[in-house]
């Protein structure tokens, strides 16, 4: 029963004590799961603004770019609204999640899409090698080769939650890797741009710590 007790304590700390006086923006666009990110930030004591206003995004202390959806139609939407140029020009800490991370790369094999290009990498499609290789990669998997500021207090081998059919290969910007069919980038980091392929907002207390590390950058 000691394990249970320990989980209680760490969770209580996250919810009750940590409070941030900062202006966090979640970018509102035509791809989903904004609500989960909003709920996760609320549990950490942050009331984020969900907005597509250029002024509010530019004035924010932290910007979160979530996403569940399809690369081609999402990039088309970002271009039509001029959001593509705006996002690339930001200087505050910026966190892309899942599709958000893939859109921060140079291009994606999903629909042969040109993306935002913060990371000069090409997003590839998982190719199953045996029957057990199910695509999408969906479920909990382990983080390895951790480096960078997002993973402070996180140990290699911790589990986080993934749902994706495309991946960024391991590259110079890789801040954490995970093995599924091939080793791939679970997280990327370059200057003010951070990105996770997994969903920190759905990854239990490990995910909460990662979000907390981002808020404390």
């Amino acid at each position: 029963m000691q394990t249970k007790r320990k989980l209680h304590d760490s969770q209580a700390t996250n919810i009750a004590i940590v409070r941030y006086k900062m202006n966090v923006v979640i970018i509102k666009y035509n791809a989903g799961n904004i609500r989960s990110v909003d709920f996760a930030l609320k549990r950490l004591g942050v009331n984020a603004q969900i907005t597509d206003s250029a002024e509010q995004i530019q004035g924010a202390d932290k910007v979160i770019f979530p996403g569940v959806g399809e690369a081609g139609s999402t990039m088309q939407f970002l271009r039509q609204t001029g959001m593509d140029k705006l996002l690339k020009s930001l200087h505050q800490p910026f966190l892309g999640i899942c599709l958000g991370m893939q859109l921060m790369c140079h291009s994606s094999e999903e629909g042969g899409t040109d993306c935002l290009g913060m990371f000069d990498e090409n997003v590839k499609r998982f190719v199953p090698q045996v029957h057990a290789d199910k695509v999408p990669h969906m479920g909990w998997n382990q983080l390895e080769n951790l480096k960078g500021k997002l993973f402070r207090d996180i140990k290699a081998g911790e589990f986080v939650y993934f749902v994706h059919s495309f991946y960024v290969p391991v590259c110079d910007f890789t801040a954490a890797s995970t093995q599924y069919i091939v080793p791939f980038s679970a997280a990327l980091e370059k200057d003010n741009f951070y990105a996770t392929q997994f969903h920190p907002e759905k990854s239990g207390s490990v995910g909460e710590t990662i979000l907390k590390n981002f808020l404390e950058l």
């Binding site: 709920f39 996760a40 549990r43 939650y161």
Partner: peptide
């Protein structure tokens, strides 16, 4: 419920 859990 969603506001209170951190898993899928």
């Amino acid at each position: 419920i969603a506001a209170n859990i951190n898993i899928p």
